[in-house]
Nucleic acid binder design. Structure first.
Lengths: 218, 218, 218, 218
DNA sequence: CATGAATGAGTATTCATTCAT
DNA sequence: AATGAATGAATACTCATTCAT
């Protein structure tokens, strides 16, 4: 039985090595320009071994994509701590937005999206899954904060699902879209501030709405 | 000299034929799955002729992408006519948004974006150009309307460049993003309405801002 | 010693298991389309064990082919019983022919022949052995009956080795040859009758020869 | 137009070169052990060119098989000349048999049959075609002579289709079967004589039947 | 100047065989 | 002694690009 465990651990090591190699190469070159031989070489295994672990290029690709979504659930304790302690509602929203930016601005994440987008025609299901998973993930994250603020009367009750998406859209326009086309996009505080203002202008209560104003309004 | 003109016209015809064929095939199959031989066959020229006109696949691809942006600037006469005639400001904004949606929802446009995104690593300059051109085009279109509305005091003075981008971001989140991942996305009037409300809430004057309200506000 | 015997019996079991598995797979798919891994899996042993028992694919193939010829010689008691009891000589010959057909029509037998023929260039000795073994087997079977009939004066004395081969040739033309090429071949009584007639016409005595006549002979 | 003819002639040369190379390699090694690269190399073309001419290995194989059956129709003038001139009926039959042997004993023919037999499971239609074509060809050839002899009362009227097949079966047993298994088989005059005798014993008229007799008959 | 035939360097995938445990 | 993971060499097939005519 010891042998089995040993072998399993070895296999896991190799598999991880392959996945890492594949991830790197796929992200760097895209799906079709990545060769199985290259991936194998970089993972220090033979192509045959590679195929023992992943029966096809597509399969390997999917596995790579999946590993990119196995992110450990990050503690959102800061949020709850803050809201109960009467923390600044603007600060909380801003934090949520910046967290979202942090995720979306990850170059690996962008590269992954590029690949999936490139393979929509070939692997529509994968693209659908990624879209659903990804958008859902981001929206839920934002929505949780927004719902919290609504619950504490810092935002007016409304369709928070939709408002989250609009918020996400503004963030993406600023951060993700340029990156997707290869541009470096840094989070500009002014832009983040304007996004925040636009959001509170629509969904804030009298208090929260009042704070950020247009430059020309006295 | 006549012979030269004749030859030049023939060459132009062939070039156009090649471009049309390449456009169709590229859009249908994506860059890497498109073969030069297929493009040549469909364009009814030899591969050698194809290579005379476009010295490489990448070059041809760039040319194809460029042709897609040589669309004639459509007359927006309706806008100016409307605004002078005291037309409904909400209606005008909505028209602008819907025009934007109409452009972005074009499947060919989406396919093109997919391809350019897929080739960012290979052709970063092209991707940059497309991003700049495309976003600029859409933003300018929206900005023109917004500026017009500002000029007529239907919106408050503000950084319309930025507000246009935020507006575009919300539109894209609803329309472009799903399509990019292969999902069908239809323009939902409610969503469009909410986008409009969010925009006017932030940038509208007292009059325009008041009209659409959250359901729970009396 | 007990341990050794035990081990030997285990080894024999495995060997048989491997042979059975290999036989099935070889016959079903042919030599080159059969994989050692598949054979091992079906025999429920590891590939290494398989290679311990049979050092190469070709070796295994030869062993398989050989097992197919280790069929126990079936008792032809019916024959001797019949001939002493003054049984119908035509009936006896017909029985022998039909027994031959029965053997040759076995799909497994045909598949085996196909494989051996396919591998003549690779394993000429094996092919030679099979040819010798197989033809000898069939010829001897027929010859025994023929000799018996000669002994009882139902056929004239002659080179029965040669006549057996001619008889076998006629049978094979009707049964084996089509099957070898994948056609279904059923034993047509008329054809069998004609073979019989042809045989007795040449080798029969006045009595036996007379019985089956050409349609146009009065 | 001259260019076209030139190119066509070149293409034909290459195609023939490929076919010759493929024929040789296929016949020497069998289908599955023959590599397209080897065939291309021997034909002095690139694999890509090979694939331009024959879109797949199977296709090439079929083409090779077909070329083996494009034998020029041999003049059978000897037959008709002979029969009208009152030639020896035994001699005519013997000639037909020997012609048949000549064809069947061709090593290339045997190798071809081996290959087709080996690929029955993969290409059943091809095997069927070859079987039908080949057997039909041989049978017809024999049948023509037999019919001729019947017409001239040298053989009794009978089902010549069937008798041809029986004759072919005897020939094949002596010549083809051993060769198929890799044995050299030479035409033994005694055996041919016996085949002839067996045939005339059954189908000959009183005259023709009488000539060759069993050694033990006075 | 246009052609289409030709190519070489690649592609993913398979398999008989061996080796560390 | 048995395992199953590992391998290297091979396989059929493709494609962007060039060259002789």
């Amino acid at each position: 039985m010891d042998l089995q465990t040993y072998r399993r651990s070895i296999a896991e090591l190799k598999q991880n090595s392959i996945l890492a190699s594949a991830r790197e190469i796929f992200l760097a070159r895209g799906y079709s320009r990545s060769g199985m031989a290259d991936i194998a070489r970089q993972a220090d295994v033979s192509t045959a071994t590679l195929y023992k672990h992943f029966p096809s290029k597509e399969n390997l690709f999917q596995a790579v994509v999946n590993t990119c979504y196995e992110t450990p659930p990050q503690a959102d304790s800061a949020l709850h701590a803050g809201i109960s302690g009467g923390a600044d509602p603007h600060g909380l929203l801003q934090q949520a937005i910046e967290a979202c930016i942090g995720h979306e601005a990850d170059p690996a994440h962008t590269a992954l999206q590029r690949m999936v987008i490139a393979e929509v025609q070939t692997a529509p299901q994968l693209a659908y899954d990624i879209y659903a998973n990804d958008s859902q993930y981001r929206v839920e994250h934002l929505k949780k904060t927004i719902d919290e603020l609504v619950a504490h009367n810092h935002l007016r009750p409304h369709d928070t699902e939709l408002s989250s998406r609009l918020l996400l859209g503004m963030i993406r326009e600023m951060m993700v879209w340029p990156q997707l086309f290869g541009l470096e996009a840094a989070a500009d505080p002014e832009e983040v501030g304007e996004i925040l203002s636009a959001f509170t202008a629509r969904y804030g209560t009298a208090t929260t709405r009042a704070i950020p104003s247009l430059p020309d309004e006295a």
